[in-house]
């Protein structure tokens, strides 16, 4: 779910933006710094909600730009534990499902949290739910409904192996082992 978070920051407005109105210049600066970034424990910043106050405008000695203290609100994507979300299935592998919301990709459903009993089809490379003798395939690009089990903010790695998967600042562990979860088409 999306939430509103209030932040205060000191922003340096670069000289080339001083010709546009101050509010726009600050808006651009906030967008550059925060948009599409993860803030630990706050979630992924989606967009700027409002600017509440602007103070200062101090020019530090030796610096050719004013610095403002700005209070502003950001729209954050921060799902809570237990929230139900719908995403698209991007990848199946032995470890489980990888789901994408379009703007957020780091969602993983580990194999022990799939509908029981599920097996991995080696030929199709897909997960199959064996439901009352029927094989229910989890096809790629299908809508998957899952429950948020955990939201993790892993620490930034100091050193990373060459072939390690790209670092994700925010990860969601999903659960599809309940009635109504799994492919949306199963339940409609």
């Amino acid at each position: 779910m999306f939430m509103l978070s209030l932040l205060r920051d000191t922003l340096r407005i670069p000289p080339h933006n001083l010709s546009i109105p101050l509010l726009d210049a600050i808006r651009v600066q906030i967008q550059n710094i925060y948009l599409d970034k993860v803030i630990k424990e706050l979630g992924l910043c989606v967009t700027l909600y409002d600017i509440r106050s602007i103070e200062g405008g101090f020019v530090f000695p030796g610096d050719g730009a004013p610095t403002f203290t700005v209070d502003f609100g950001l729209v954050m994507f921060r799902p809570f534990v237990g929230e139900v979300l719908v995403g698209k299935l991007k990848k199946c592998d032995k470890t489980g499902l990888h789901i994408s919301l379009g703007f957020f990709d780091d969602i993983h459903v580990p194999e022990h949290l799939l509908q029981q009993p599920s097996t991995f089809d080696e030929e199709e490379k897909l997960w199959v739910w064996k439901y009352q003798g029927n094989d229910m395939f989890m096809d790629l690009d299908e809508d998957v409904r899952f429950r948020v089990l955990q939201v993790k903010y892993p620490p930034i790695p100091v050193e990373q192996d060459k072939d390690a998967k790209p670092f994700a600042p925010m990860e969601i562990i999903g659960d599809t082992n309940a009635d109504g979860l799994g492919l949306v088409s199963w339940w409609s």
Partner: peptide
């Protein structure tokens, strides 16, 4: 950066959509 209020309110999907629409 200082976090003044981590949770200043919940936004429904519609409100976020409306805001993004107003942003163009």
């Amino acid at each position: 950066m200082k976090i003044l209020e981590a949770n200043a309110g919940l936004l429904s999907n519609f409100e976020v959509l409306d805001l993004l629409r107003s942003r163009g």
